[in-house]
Amino acid sequence: MRKSFILIVLFIGIVSTTYGQEGFAVRAGFNNVSISVDTGGFFGDVSDSELGFYVGGGYNFEVCETFDIEPSLLFSFVDDLTSLYLPIMGKYRITDQFNVQAGPQINYLLEDLPDGEFGLDIAFGGGYQIDDNWFVEARYGFQISRAGDFGDAVDINTLTVGAGYRFN
């Protein structure tokens, strides 16, 4: 819990110092976290899925007319599995409103777990720019590795669906 409080204070500090800069966005929405555990054939695979929500922010860097890079910091709150996500998404604009997104996503479990706190995902999805400020987006993150002794046996995948506001 103490780690969570420190990270939330850090995030609020980042948001307050970058507020109003071109390309900064805040976002929130729902997420579905799926956990699958490989028991080594003992009982077959065990899996569970839980709904929660996320909140965070990011900064959009325009690389060229049709391509952006947007790193974000997201806090995910799901029953018994609070996490911090750092997606670095490449966004290709198909039109002025629609984009497709893909990139790596680092995740860190904020719960007091003895092992496997860090993970690396590949995330992909899409977004729709409603107007100059408001947008909606959806992404799915597939875990490709997890640190620790049990990292190969546990897969954590995440679906996020939400909305955001971009400060221009």
Rank of each mutant, 00 (worst) to 15 (best):
T66I: 05
N157H: 02
F67H: 00
Q129F: 06
V154W: 05
I156T: 15
L113T: 11
N31D: 15
V100G: 07
Q97I: 09
I35Y: 03
G141V: 00
P71Y: 03
T160A: 15
Q129W: 04
V154M: 10
F53C: 11
T95S: 13
E62D: 14
V136I: 15
R27C: 13
G164I: 03
K3I: 14
K3F: 05
T95V: 11
I6F: 02
F24G: 06
V78A: 14
Q105D: 08
E50H: 12
I14D: 05
D121A: 05
F61D: 08
R27D: 14
R146V: 10
L113P: 01
T158W: 10
N31K: 09
A28Y: 10
F77K: 01
L73S: 04
F142V: 10
A25E: 14
G151H: 11
R93G: 07
F77P: 08
F124M: 00
G57K: 02
G125C: 09
F77Y: 01
I6S: 06
L73Q: 01
G41H: 03
P104I: 06
E50L: 07
L86C: 04
S72Q: 12
F142H: 01
D96I: 00
F67P: 07
S76Y: 10
D96Y: 00
Q129E: 11
I12D: 09
D149L: 11
G29Q: 03
L110M: 12
S145D: 15
Y19R: 00
T18I: 11
L10V: 12
V33Q: 09
S83G: 14
D152G: 11
G148K: 05
D80K: 03
E65N: 08
Q143P: 01
N32P: 02
L84T: 09
G44W: 10
S36E: 15
G103M: 01
Y165E: 03
E50M: 07
F124Y: 09
D121Q: 07
N31V: 13
I12H: 07
D48N: 10
F24M: 13
E22V: 11
T158H: 08
F24I: 04
F124P: 02
K3D: 14
F167G: 08
V15P: 00
N168F: 08
V63I: 15
L81H: 10
S49H: 02
V63Q: 01
E70F: 10
L74G: 09
L159E: 02
E111C: 02
D80G: 12
Y92A: 13
E117G: 11
D112V: 06
G141N: 06
D115F: 04
D48Q: 06
F24N: 07
G57M: 05
Y108H: 11
L10S: 08
G103D: 02
S36D: 15
D68T: 05
E111Y: 05
I8Y: 07
D80Q: 06
D112S: 13
E65R: 04
N107M: 10
E70A: 14
L84N: 10
G41Y: 00
F42A: 14
N133T: 13
V37D: 05
G56Y: 03
I144L: 14
G58C: 04
L81T: 08
S83H: 05
T160K: 09
D80R: 02
E22Y: 02
A153M: 09
F5M: 05
G23D: 07
N99F: 00
F135H: 04
F150G: 10
D131A: 11
E65W: 02
